[in-house]
Amino acid sequence: MEDFETVPSIPSPLETMQTLGFDYSVGALVAATLFGIIGIWLFRKGRREAHLPNVAVGVGLMVYPLFVTSTLYTWVVGTLLCGIAYYYWP
């Protein structure tokens, strides 16, 4: 019999994401989804009413979860941005 070379295994999507530096937990994904929905709502409301702070905070809420992987920091930053939106509410 001939010796066949073993084919290297294909990494799972989770392993691929972890090697690229994306190590999200379930809590961080839930927080990102929640704050993303709030961000879309604030962005649309701010554009409709021409209120720049709502637009800026809405964009911030939609974008920041892409750069924060820690669950605690995701909740803290999202809560702070929602507090800023509440402070500047017209």
Rank of each mutant, 00 (worst) to 15 (best):
M1D: 06
M1F: 12
E2R: 04
E2M: 03
T6R: 09
T6G: 06
T6H: 10
P8Q: 13
P8W: 04
P8V: 08
S9T: 11
I10D: 13
I10F: 08
I10L: 15
P11W: 07
P13A: 09
L14A: 15
E15D: 12
E15C: 05
T16L: 09
M17C: 05
M17S: 13
T19Y: 11
L20E: 10
G21W: 08
F22P: 04
Y24E: 00
Y24I: 02
V26C: 05
V26F: 12
V26D: 11
V26M: 09
G27I: 02
G27N: 07
V30C: 13
V30I: 15
A31V: 05
A32M: 07
A32C: 08
A32D: 08
T33E: 06
L34Q: 06
G36Y: 13
G36Q: 08
I37P: 08
G39C: 08
I40A: 03
W41P: 01
W41L: 14
W41M: 09
L42E: 02
L42Q: 11
R44H: 04
G46V: 02
G46Y: 03
R47G: 03
R48L: 12
R48E: 11
A50R: 07
A50M: 05
A50P: 01
A50C: 01
H51S: 00
P53Y: 04
N54M: 11
N54V: 00
V55C: 05
V55D: 00
A56H: 02
V57E: 10
V57R: 03
G58R: 01
V59Q: 05
G60P: 07
G60M: 08
L61K: 00
V63P: 02
V63T: 12
V63G: 04
P65I: 01
L66H: 10
F67W: 09
F67H: 07
V68M: 13
V68F: 09
T69N: 11
S70G: 13
T71P: 03
L72G: 09
L72M: 12
Y73S: 14
T74R: 01
W75I: 14
V76T: 10
V77K: 05
T79M: 13
T79I: 15
C82H: 02
C82F: 07
G83E: 02
I84D: 07
Y87Q: 13
Y87I: 05
Y88Q: 06
Y88P: 00
